[in-house]
Amino acid sequence: MVGEKISSFIQVWLIVVTSLCYCHAIGRTVPKGTTRLAFLLPVVCLFLFLPLKLDSPHLGGLTAFFIAWLANFKLLLFALDRGPLNSQVSLPLFIALACLPIKIQHTPLSKPHPNKGISSSSVVNYAVKVVLLGIILWAYDYIDYMHPYVIKLLYSLHIYFFLEIVLAIGAAVVRSFSGLELEPQFNEPFLSTSLQDFWGKRWNLMVTGILRPTVYEPALRFSSAVIGRKWAPLPSVFSTFVVSGVMHELMFYYLGRMSPTGEMTLFFLIHGFCLTVEIGLKKASKGWWQPPWVVTGPLTVGFVLGTGFWLFIPQFTRSKTDVRAFEEYAELGAWLKECLGFLMEK
């Protein structure tokens, strides 16, 4: 079973890499604009279809996030010669930038160095999170004895640690091959001082970076012409959260193959509305009242967790993604044990 899933995963990603080779060639030969967009649209449609070929919650979920969301948004920007993709870079780097949640910092390293940009504190930080993720996986053995809110908290921490570790590994691989310093994807979201700080500077920064040029900036230009530059960020921020909600509905469809319930969209509409109000109050007060972090920090994290427990986490249980994930861990353990036994016999 595990072997079949890995085989399907490899097949899908061979198609992805081949498609991105085509996109790289298109960028070098076809001028930007509607003509290039017409050549890239078949790949965008293909990337929307490919995650349906994977029924693994881990491999399928990550593939959907990488190609159906990030890569497709980057390709749409690439059609206009904007965003992180550039046909002048090498093909391997183009492929990595297209389908991995990474972003090159403005000041690249002058020479590749395996340890450059990786501090000892970062190593310790990730090592601690790997250990914590292992503890969470172990704790699932006793899930029948846990309170539902404890289970939801474990799921929330699992998602955070899993995403940060996987994205950090992807960035480290690209860094080792290219010698370029890459921006981190998370910035300790539990230290957030406000919703603006959480969504704009700390949580899944690659999504923030790709939604800004594709949704926020066009909406900002339109809103500026209608209501003026001062208040234009408010509808622009809300529009960004609407799109994010729709894309999360799509991601959960890939995970569970269930019709959207609207709860994902509601989660992001609530956060978009509250963030819009927060920004509006800051503009109206001109920053004269700023509560200390000891007040705003727990309120922010508590609000994110509370709304997540209500609308976000239940999507995993409703689609039985959590059950399938546990089965996948068991299958992986049995498969690794079988492989180890085979190697020992040799």
Rank of each mutant, 00 (worst) to 15 (best):
5 K>E: 06
5 K>S: 13
12 V>C: 08
14 L>I: 08
14 L>G: 11
16 V>A: 00
16 V>G: 00
18 T>P: 08
27 G>Q: 01
32 K>E: 06
34 T>G: 04
37 L>F: 02
38 A>K: 06
45 C>N: 04
46 L>S: 00
46 L>I: 00
50 L>D: 00
51 P>A: 02
58 H>P: 14
59 L>R: 02
61 G>D: 02
61 G>N: 00
69 W>N: 09
73 F>T: 08
79 A>R: 03
79 A>F: 04
81 D>E: 06
82 R>L: 13
84 P>N: 10
85 L>C: 07
86 N>V: 13
87 S>G: 09
89 V>H: 13
90 S>A: 14
97 L>Q: 07
97 L>I: 07
98 A>Y: 06
102 I>K: 05
105 Q>C: 15
109 L>K: 10
111 K>R: 14
111 K>F: 13
112 P>T: 09
118 I>S: 03
122 S>Q: 15
122 S>A: 12
126 Y>R: 09
127 A>M: 12
130 V>C: 12
134 G>F: 01
140 Y>R: 07
141 D>L: 13
141 D>R: 15
142 Y>V: 06
145 Y>K: 15
149 Y>W: 07
149 Y>F: 13
151 I>M: 06
154 L>A: 12
163 L>Y: 10
164 E>L: 01
165 I>N: 03
165 I>S: 03
165 I>T: 02
167 L>M: 14
168 A>M: 11
169 I>T: 07
170 G>S: 14
172 A>K: 14
174 V>I: 11
174 V>P: 15
176 S>Q: 15
177 F>M: 15
178 S>C: 10
178 S>R: 07
179 G>H: 04
181 E>A: 08
181 E>N: 12
184 P>D: 10
187 N>H: 13
188 E>S: 12
193 T>V: 15
202 R>I: 05
204 N>P: 01
205 L>Y: 06
208 T>L: 03
212 R>M: 11
216 Y>T: 05
217 E>M: 12
222 F>M: 02
224 S>E: 03
230 K>R: 13
233 P>N: 02
234 L>P: 02
242 V>Q: 05
242 V>K: 04
244 S>E: 02
246 V>D: 05
250 L>H: 03
250 L>R: 07
250 L>Q: 12
251 M>L: 15
251 M>Y: 09
255 L>Q: 03
258 M>R: 14
259 S>P: 00
259 S>Q: 14
260 P>R: 00
260 P>F: 04
263 E>R: 00
264 M>R: 02
266 L>H: 08
271 H>L: 03
271 H>Y: 01
272 G>D: 01
272 G>F: 00
274 C>D: 11
277 V>P: 01
281 L>R: 12
283 K>T: 04
288 W>G: 06
290 Q>M: 05
292 P>S: 14
298 P>E: 05
300 T>Y: 04
300 T>V: 09
302 G>P: 03
303 F>I: 08
305 L>V: 11
306 G>C: 06
307 T>P: 00
313 I>W: 05
315 Q>E: 06
315 Q>C: 07
316 F>Y: 10
319 S>R: 11
320 K>M: 05
320 K>E: 10
324 R>M: 07
324 R>N: 01
332 L>W: 12
334 A>I: 14
334 A>F: 10
336 L>D: 15
338 E>R: 14
339 C>Y: 14
340 L>C: 14
